[in-house]
Write a protein that binds this DNA or RNA. Structure first.
Lengths: 284, 284
DNA sequence: AGTACAAAGAATAAATTATTGACGCTGCCT
DNA sequence: AGGCAGCGTCAATAATTTATTCTTTGTACT
């Protein structure tokens, strides 16, 4: 039980000196942090031993024990978010860094909301499957290439064969090698690049599984896809929005990645081995 | 600032004994309540004075001060209401997604802690300057290439001329074209790739400004650099740690990027124009 | 090799905390 | 009224805990 509540409840049964101690703590709980039992006694003009006895009567082992509990109580009272609650929605005192962080969190949460765990698991399963009996194709253009490249690297570290392209010509060529059991991951923020759509359609004709990663808008690519991951990220500032998009997308992909890792021990082992090998190569 | 986060953020820089103390506290924070500094020392088989020094290095007045802060942190963590129902951080009731999100936040916060705003501003200024009267060279190998590439793209969108390489040969060649007023951004998680160090040294000889982006460890690259950005991210799971690293690093770079954008209206205009042009190109 | 420096521990000083015993007060019983 | 039991307070002091100093050890850098 909170020491503050305890003090209040016992207050009536206390002696005069004890009551003074109790009242002081109730009113100056936050000061207690820097008070020794002696200082507290001085502040009240009483003896140090009275302070200690007070704490013991309340059931604590001694003064430091009570002090610790009061600290907990205070921390619990201002429910942790004091630093966050104050500069809440775009307050003026908010630093740019904190603001950015908050916006990112919002985007990530929004994105998490529109991608049910079921969908994410389905994507992970599909990729896992393709990693066993097939290939994983990945494509993204422009900025999307960055995300595609990133994810492709992660997958190869897991021992999943990935074919990563960043132009439509090559991917068109590669796609002709695709068949059932393969997966194509298309990264396209707006989901309406004609060439990508064309490739996607072609890929589906060859009975491959299509996974799209786009904004949460109605768009042709997403419509084509067997499985669709969608991202939500908005900001009025043109230089902020891409950051949010990336963050939310990254978080989404990380979720898939973790599922892949946790699915099978063998994957984890492969990853570890690969990481070590790379480490060695980079630090001779 | 939560002592637990602080410990995590400093972990890289700690000596072996200090790290043991830190890890013990991170793992047994709730036990600390009943431990004196001597008992803690015994539990770890080290001297009591080492424990005290540990607390002081972290910026606390002494052991009791740290202990009090840890108490607060724990109290804040289990949000006051459900004392036992919701077990502390990392409990089994927590979904993987939420857990990952929390770990990321911690890494980002720790990273923010160890990079003072002043340092970030200095980096932004240096890049901005180079964007006007010079060139910005960027290099990263392996996974670091992803981050380097990402940032390079962002810079070019801002109208800053960037030379991005992902192998040492090319960069070596390019570096010979460097001079005063130029900036080299080196991405290297562990900061001890010999070739990168060599290039960096060479670049500095040519009077260019060197900016390193590494883990928060003492490492050669960071030592060489005029300006150093550092990242803190840890997890016992080998497949989680890279995600945290990336997240924290990304957040750091985003901070720089935002500063660059906000510094001058002209940059914002360039960005806008570029985004539009790209948009058109991708969606004819 | 030699020096400089940092880190850890042992010893010890300082501080804080807990206990003891003395003193005084109040209330109550004879 | 006198005396005594019980409680509360405090000063003194014992015990514990914490902080500092100093020495040793190991390590990195000439």
């Amino acid at each position: 039980m909170s020491p503050l509540v305890k003090i209040r409840s016992e207050r009536d049964r206390m002696s005069a000196v004890e009551r003074r101690v109790g009242d002081f703590i109730l009113e100056n709980a936050q000061l207690l942090r820097d008070y020794s039992s002696q200082q507290l006694a001085n502040a009240l003009g009483i003896s140090q031993s009275s302070v200690v006895k007070f704490t013991q009567k309340l059931g604590y082992k001694g003064y430091p024990d009570l002090k610790y509990s009061v600290g907990e109580a205070i921390a619990r009272a201002d429910n942790g978010d004091a630093p966050e609650a104050a500069p809440a929605a775009g307050g003026p005192g908010e630093s740019p860094a904190e603001n950015l962080w908050r916006r990112k969190s919002e985007a990530e949460e929004a994105t998490r909301l529109i991608n049910p765990p079921k969908a994410i698991r389905a994507v992970a399963r599909a990729i896992d499957q393709a990693g066993r009996d097939g290939k994983v194709f990945i494509i993204g253009l422009g900025e999307d290439d960055i995300y595609a490249r990133n994810f492709a690297l992660r997958l190869s570290l897991l021992g999943i064969l990935t074919v990563h392209d960043f132009d439509t010509a090559r991917m068109t060529a590669n796609a002709s090698a695709a068949g059932a059991g393969d997966v194509l991951l298309v990264f396209s923020e707006h989901g309406n690049h004609p060439a990508l759509c064309k490739i996607s359609r072609y890929f589906r004709e060859r009975r491959g599984k299509l996974i799209s990663v786009t904004r949460h808008t109605p768009n042709p690519l997403r419509t084509l896809a067997d499985l669709a991951l969608v991202v939500s990220a908005h900001d009025e500032l043109p230089y902020i929005q891409p950051l949010l998009y990336q963050s939310a997308l990254q978080h989404l992909l990380d979720g898939v990645f973790v599922l892949l890792c946790e699915g099978h021990d063998s994957r984890g082992a492969t990853l570890l081995a690969n990481l070590e090998r790379i480490q060695l190569m980079l630090e001779p």
